[in-house]
Amino acid sequence: MKSANQKYAEQVVALIPVDRAYKNRIKEDIISRLEEYHSSASPEDLMGSTYEVAQEFIENIEPSALINQGKKTFNYTSKAKIMGIPLISIRVGKFEVAKGIIAIGNFSVGVISIGAFSLGIFSLGGIGLGVIAFGGLALGAIGAFGGVAAAYMLAIGGVAVAHNLAIGGVAIATDIAIGDVAHAKLTAYMSEYKGEFGFNRLTDSAQLFTAQLNKSFPNFPKFLKRILDIVYSSTTY
């Protein structure tokens, strides 16, 4: 189990943009220094906040040892908070996590989360993970929308995978899939389908599909039915 000194030292070096060997050097010296105090006080009380200590190091480390020098960064944390969480947090260009109600950054965690790697209620990112997620790779609980999208209820994407409804070039679902290639119990397809019921979107009418939908899934979520209506209303038979 890690000691408080070790944890503190790790938190400090996490804030210093240097390579692993340099980080280990600093970590070792911080732990050693804390032992010199012979005190049961917390490391923060003895040496200061992790941020302050890290800043002191950064100011004195050879510029050539610092990683990402010259790389543009932007940090912003709003003073306004909700339940102790910043309303807006932005961390761009650093290996830091933006955490806020609205979080924007390379790595972001928030209610509305936007980032290369994002996690949130509404998540938008290269890789997005959330209740509703948008992204190159989107993983969502209710909905996922993206190049590759996977969700429990609704997935829309180049490749879409879902439990309830998947719509995409390749759509795979337990219940309903709509796509060029569709795999599900009930499918509407263009080229190929696999499942119990397959309706060709070019030759079979929307009414036939809807009748089967109501028969096979009488309790299918209404908002998903509405989405199916919209998809079908855009199709000419």
Partner: peptide, 11 residues
């Protein structure tokens, strides 16, 4: 402070 000394030592 430590953050001033140790980088000197490393250098």
């Amino acid at each position: 402070k430590e953050g001033s000394l140790y980088p000197v030592l490393y250098r």
